[in-house]
Amino acid sequence: MDWPRLDFAAEQDVYHSAHLYLQLIGKLPTRLHPWENHGWHVALKITPSGFVTRTIAANNRIFSVEFDCQGSNIVVDCDGKAVRIIPVTGQSVAALHGELADALTALGLPVPLHGAPNELPEVIPFKDDDRKRAWDPDVIARAHGAFSRADAAFSRFRAAYLGKSSPSHLFWGSFDLAVTRFSGRRAPPHPGGFPNLPDRVTREAYSHEVISAGFWLGGGDVDEAAFYTYAYPSPDGLGDAKVAPDAAYWHDELGEFVLPYADVAAASDPEDRLLTFLESTYEAAAHLMDWPDDVATSRASYGRPTQEV
């Protein structure tokens, strides 16, 4: 299966629009679902069509909201019976805020859509952001295709770990797909400092030692789609570790290993190339952090356990 072409330089304005739309949707589980450790409940799941909230219970009903990347719609599904579809056309965040609020109200659901985006340096409250947004259905469909292929590899990587691990899930604050492994040991308090995000949220997310891998469409100090791996707390010497494949490198400013998406997409076996990166960077960090040797198994295969049981 081919991995879709991505072009950050040409497509970043559409990515930013999608990021802001997802921020609006992401507020719902934040305010209507019991808090789970490390904020896992707020993350979105990858579907064949797009990104969806987990099922939320409210007002004696259950519902979810999906950002349909393949159809450029937002779909509110309530009780599996009542559906509201909001076309995404590049409207302002304020306009989408109003449309989503109307859809939720019509279904008898709560509307906790107040506030502003998180983890962005400059934010405008949702209801006040009336700037028209760049949009291209083909761009977001291809971006979703890249997330979907990364999700499949991340899920396979997760399956080879016997300790506590997050699912592969999309965090709308940073607009990245992530899968995180835990040693079980407490970590020192995180310094926080993420823009427009309370430090208490960051410190709870990093309450325990982690080695985390992810994928994002580009931005900040990396102007291309890329995969990454980092550890918290980051051990001394991690940046000097030898990892694979050859295209992977240590990014000093981010404190992460980075592998360009283009290198993976061009490989004869993209999933194998990505798994090689995930496995080698995990091994480098786990060795330096003195994690147990018996929690990571051989690469997970389909249809059989990862070890004898």
Results as ranks from 00 to 15, higher is better:
W3A: 01
R5I: 09
R5N: 14
V14F: 02
A18S: 08
H19V: 09
L22P: 01
L22S: 08
L32P: 01
W35C: 12
N37Q: 13
I46C: 12
R54H: 15
R54D: 15
T55C: 12
R61V: 01
I62D: 11
F63K: 05
F67N: 00
D68I: 08
Q70T: 12
N73T: 10
I74L: 12
I74P: 00
V76Q: 01
V76K: 00
C78K: 04
G80C: 04
I85D: 05
P87H: 10
V88M: 13
V93E: 01
A95L: 14
L96K: 00
H97F: 13
D102H: 14
A103W: 02
L104K: 02
L109C: 01
V111E: 13
E119A: 15
E122D: 15
E122I: 06
D129E: 14
R131V: 13
A134M: 10
W135C: 06
D136G: 05
I140P: 03
G145L: 03
A146R: 00
F147P: 00
D151Q: 09
D151L: 03
A152P: 01
R158M: 11
S166Y: 06
P167F: 06
H169P: 01
L170F: 14
S174Y: 11
V179Q: 04
T180A: 07
R181E: 06
G184V: 12
F194H: 09
D199Y: 10
R200T: 14
R203M: 08
E204M: 12
S207E: 15
E209F: 00
F215V: 12
T229I: 01
A231I: 00
P233T: 08
P235F: 02
G237K: 11
V243G: 02
D246P: 02
Y249D: 02
E253M: 14
G255H: 08
Y261S: 07
A262H: 09
A262Q: 11
A267D: 13
L275P: 07
T276W: 10
A286H: 03
A286M: 05
D290C: 14
D290E: 15
D294Y: 09
S298R: 11
Y302R: 13
P305L: 09
E308G: 13
V309D: 14
